[in-house]
Computed example of a mutant assay.
Amino acid sequence: MTDTLTLAPTTDGLARAAGLLRAGGLVAFPTETVYGLGGDARNDRAVAAIFAAKGRPSFNPLIVHVPDMEAARSVARFDARAEALAATFWPGPLTLVLPLRLDAGISPLVTAGLPTVAVRLPAHPVAQGLLRAFGGPLAAPSANPSGKVSPTRADHVLAGLSGRIVAVVDGGPCAVGVESTIIGLDGDPALLRPGGVTVEALEAALGQSLQAGGSETRPNAPGQLASHYAPGAPVRLNVTAPEAGEVWVGFGPCPGAALSLSETGDDVEAAARLFHILRQADDLAGPAGRIAFAPIPDRGLGRAINDRLRRAAAPRG
């Protein structure tokens, strides 16, 4: 165990965080989606420490975060489709799974030994500042114990990982609130995980439909395991009339709901609030209670919200 520092998102704070990363330490930092747990993507020991801190299975690949397109192209091979999506949506909440460059220097633990790599150029100014200060690629899954609720605030990170990592850079709440959309481009374009960029926008940019992709048993990108984002209390979905002992989380007009993702039915607000509300509901439910979510339309960001909720509600091994 180690004391986990909380660093300010200042020039000095980012310089100290970058020094800790260069020394092989793990530093959590905000992105526009959720807080990521950063480690040097070229350092086997640092990447192994990410898996150990999270209790994450080693067959589940990590996303490599980079500060600019030059760095992205040094890690992965971009074709015309990838270049077009990057030009439209980067920096932003989109991850591309592309063929790995053999000379990229990325630890094979990051890719789970696969010939592809997941790459993202985040938009958050603190993430951008840290990546530039560090001067290299960072492997960064969500900064929480594996399978649990993702963190959108620094205190969420500390609640799950305090003592397991060297520092967290406190950049305030994350604006998007659900993880990045992941698109596989090592074959026909495939949706591997819905997220902060909508499927509709991606299909419009590509000029074609996305195939369904991914595997719960042999994932080629994060967020594909059946049980994920799980609170302590059991979760029930599409509930219009909660049962006794359930904390009801509304969406849109839901008189009597204990909490609401968005009282106006705004999927952007709901996505930004999802993981924080899930934590609040878990606290209200306590050890014997349950959580019930009102129906959410499965379109736009609602698709990403429902994906996270289905995994939160899945049977747990």
Rank of each mutant, 00 (worst) to 15 (best):
G300K: 06
A86W: 12
R164N: 15
I182F: 05
V34C: 03
F134Q: 07
D155F: 10
D282F: 02
D40I: 10
G207R: 08
A233G: 10
I182E: 04
L185T: 09
A294T: 09
D155H: 14
A175L: 12
I183C: 04
T33F: 04
T88I: 13
G265K: 01
L14F: 06
A112T: 12
A221S: 14
R299T: 07
H156A: 08
R316A: 14
A84Y: 03
D79C: 00
L100R: 09
E203A: 14
V178S: 07
S180N: 05
V64D: 02
P151W: 01
S262W: 00
A233R: 05
D307S: 14
G171D: 00
D103L: 13
W248C: 06
L14Q: 00
A17D: 00
G136L: 04
E32D: 14
F29H: 02
L191M: 12
V249T: 09
S146T: 12
A226L: 10
P189G: 06
R311S: 03
G232Q: 13
G286D: 13
A154N: 01
F275H: 05
I50Q: 03
P253C: 01
G105W: 10
R279Y: 08
A294Y: 05
V268K: 13
L138R: 04
T116F: 04
A285I: 09
A154T: 09
G300H: 05
G195N: 00
W248N: 02
A143P: 09
A52S: 09
T152F: 01
D266F: 08
T264G: 08
R73F: 11
L62I: 11
P30Q: 06
T95Q: 06
G286F: 11
V47E: 12
G245R: 12
R310S: 01
G24W: 09
E83T: 12
V168A: 14
P141F: 10
P295R: 01
L85N: 05
F251I: 01
S262I: 03
A86M: 06
L20Q: 10
L62Q: 04
A84P: 00
P242K: 02
A241S: 15
W90G: 06
A49M: 06
E243C: 12
D40N: 15
I165H: 01
R308S: 05
G129E: 04
